[in-house]
């Protein structure tokens, strides 16, 4: 049913720390790797001149002009936010898109999907991509087949992107539990929603980059301005003429 549940027992999702993400793309690769099993995520012309493919997670990179401080590079992972008011679910004509009442995870039942693409239009965050080979919609599953997978060792029962992140920039947990790691991170670090005006009430939260303070000049800066004199100066001038 594409009606949204009023409340969900658990509220599973991710916290993404923009302060520690180094933009290594490991989560992109791990996500693709894990989710490439069974139905898979197809690529087109993978080794050709114009490669393209289906991914559930993408990492952007922004430069931010910070007032009264040096500019900053911020790496920005983007995947489904498992919104509470998920517009992608209610637009779906077939019931293929749904939000689970038990934990709030937003999923696509590929066997019922007609590939109309309306849900991808409805998502403000670009979290859904149509698989060009299979003609059905793909999105982040919050790795349901890991987090509930009893055959995996306990420490692996978290999303592939979280498990793989070398800087611990991604955290997984239940936002309904105020004592969970994700809830505490959001409270301590001022976790925020993306485009709150869109009214989607995302579950995933982003932690802002920490304040880096004013810039300090590099200790090597004086060396940049060095002028060669004597023999070195003569050499420098001669070489410059060649």
């Amino acid at each position: 049913m594409t009606a949204l549940p009023q409340t969900t027992e658990k509220k599973l999702g991710l916290v993404i720390d923009l302060d520690t993400c180094v933009g290594c793309q490991a989560c992109v690769t791990a996500c693709k790797g894990w989710n490439d099993q069974s139905h898979g995520l197809s690529d087109q012309d993978a080794y050709g001149a114009n490669p393209s493919g289906t991914f559930l997670n993408r990492v952007h990179s922004y430069q931010v002009a910070v007032p009264d401080a040096p500019p900053q590079i911020v790496n920005f992972p983007r995947s489904c936010l498992h919104c509470e008011v998920a517009p992608c679910v209610t637009v779906c004509p077939t019931g293929a898109s749904y939000k689970r009442a038990e934990d709030g995870i937003v999923l696509v039942n590929e066997d019922a999907c007609i590939g109309c693409g309306l849900c991808a239009w409805a998502c403000p965050y670009g979290a859904r991509e149509m698989d060009a080979d299979q003609g059905v919609m793909k999105k982040c599953t919050l790795c349901v087949d890991r987090i509930e997978n009893e055959t995996l060792p306990e420490e692996d029962r978290e999303p592939a992107c979280v498990r793989t992140c070398p800087t611990n920039a991604r955290h997984f947990g239940d936002f309904n539990d105020p004592e969970s790691k994700v809830s505490r991170l959001v409270a301590d670090r001022g976790g925020y929603d993306l485009m709150p005006d869109m009214g989607t009430k995302p579950t995933n939260k982003y932690l802002p980059p920490r304040n880096k303070g004013p810039g300090t000049a590099s200790p090597l800066a004086p060396l940049l301005d060095i002028k060669a004199t004597g023999v070195a100066g003569w050499l420098d001038r001669m070489l410059g003429k060649i």
Binding site: S52, S61, Q63, V64, P71, I73, G117
Partner: peptide, 28 residues
């Protein structure tokens, strides 16, 4: 607002997330 980086300053694209096109770019 899309990245929430407005609380830090003014963001612009430094590097694209992927060098080739994808469904989002073609469709949206």
């Amino acid at each position: 607002t899309a990245t929430g980086l407005d609380r830090l300053g003014t963001p612009t694209v430094f590097e694209p997330a992927h060098t080739a096109g994808n469904y989002l770019m073609r469709e949206m």
